[in-house]
Amino acid sequence: MITIIDYGSGNLKSIRNGFRRIGADALVTNDKKDLEQAEVLILPGVGAFGTAMKNLQKYQDIIHQHIQEGKPFLGVCLGLQVLFSESEESPGVKGLDVFPGKVVRFPETLPPQGLKIPHMGWNNLNTLRYSPLMEGIDQDYMYFVHSYYVQPEDPEIVVATVDYGVEVPAVVAQDNVFATQFHPEKSGPVGLEILKNFLKQAL
């Protein structure tokens, strides 16, 4: 079962609808038993890093266990950021630390160049290396909305980036863990293609 972690943040229906559209049903739940039994775990997320980590507290062990067992995992937007060690958005709050590195805010030098914060809208990807998640996808436009971005310690985990005054990691992946800074469930037919790729190698 594809299981979407409901930890009280934002629009979870859309990602579920996205999976439905490609023929897979997904369960949205905050029930620990269901989450423990998940074959595939999806961590969505909008909002602030600190609030998200507070709400994720009780699911931390389940997430770590799931990842350690080698089961497929997909983080989306803030669900990518919380995989890292810490964030400038919420100093002192520890992230899930699956990937060493930190989350930083877009520099204030961007708006004077006409680059608004948040980075909101459709931006095209630069693919750096192969990942099954990105099969058939290269320079496509994806829907982003965020004011912070990740700086992984290990550059090898970055699959694709996006240019927004700085080079922003847009897709990170390592073994069974995949995460996108953009919203595949809001990125039109190409976004659904990414969900399909994820499921193809997951199931």
Binding site: R20, E185, K186
Partner: peptide
Amino acid sequence: IKATTENVFVP
């Protein structure tokens, strides 16, 4: 909105 987002995958 519910009915729309079953088939519409943009913001």
